[in-house]
Amino acid sequence: MRIALFADIHGNREALTACLDHAGRSRIDRHVFLGDYIGYGADPVFAVETVMAYVEGGAVALLGNHDAAALEPDPGMSDLAFAAMEWTRNKLSSAHLAFIKGLPLSGEESGRLYVHANAYAPGAWEYVTGPHAASKCLMATRAQETFCGHTHVPMLFHMSVTGKVASFEPADRVDIPLTARRRWLAVIGSVGQPRDHNPAACYAILDATRSTLTYIRVPYDVDAAARKIRDAGLPLALSYRLAQGY
């Protein structure tokens, strides 16, 4: 059973297409979308409709904070995110909004937990950026493996039987064995707006049979995605950051 995990697509059509193409050549049995399909990027309709089609085919999709903000403005958002969301909301149809409204905050299957931000308060959108938050997240669930997004920085946390939590920066395309003797929290990097200084889109493949997790960086046409953001009249900073991966 091979599961492809996608997080933080943020309306980036070029990045999403590149990742799905790559996954299409990687014998994937199941697609899991960890939220934040829209916001920042110029193709929110494409992103939502693509995820809708996969869900119809049996994929899992969760609610992210930007998706929720399309339904109800979130005053806690940064100015950039807020401005982009005002623009995005006008592009979406009632069918798109109805789909978003039906998305759950988390999902669980076979000892795995999927959630957008964290396991301890999924709807409060706190970030898992270090071992402290990771520890809180791992304590909040009995699942052996938790998968989330939200930070846009790929990171793998793990907790040993003695309760020690450590972090690890995964390398590109290395199969990491998720050993049975510890619990794992995988923060999947972002498809549409990576922030770890590497502009390539990021997604991950979990091989549930072999218990390995592989982070994959996929180069895509950053210039095209950035140009569309400029042409749409969205804040310029959102286009520049794509090329820098921050």
Binding site: H158, K164, I176
Partner: peptide, 10 residues
């Protein structure tokens, strides 16, 4: 090199 160093962390 490319896997978590479980010994150092424990």
């Amino acid at each position: 090199d490319q896997l978590p160093d479980l010994i150092a962390e424990e």
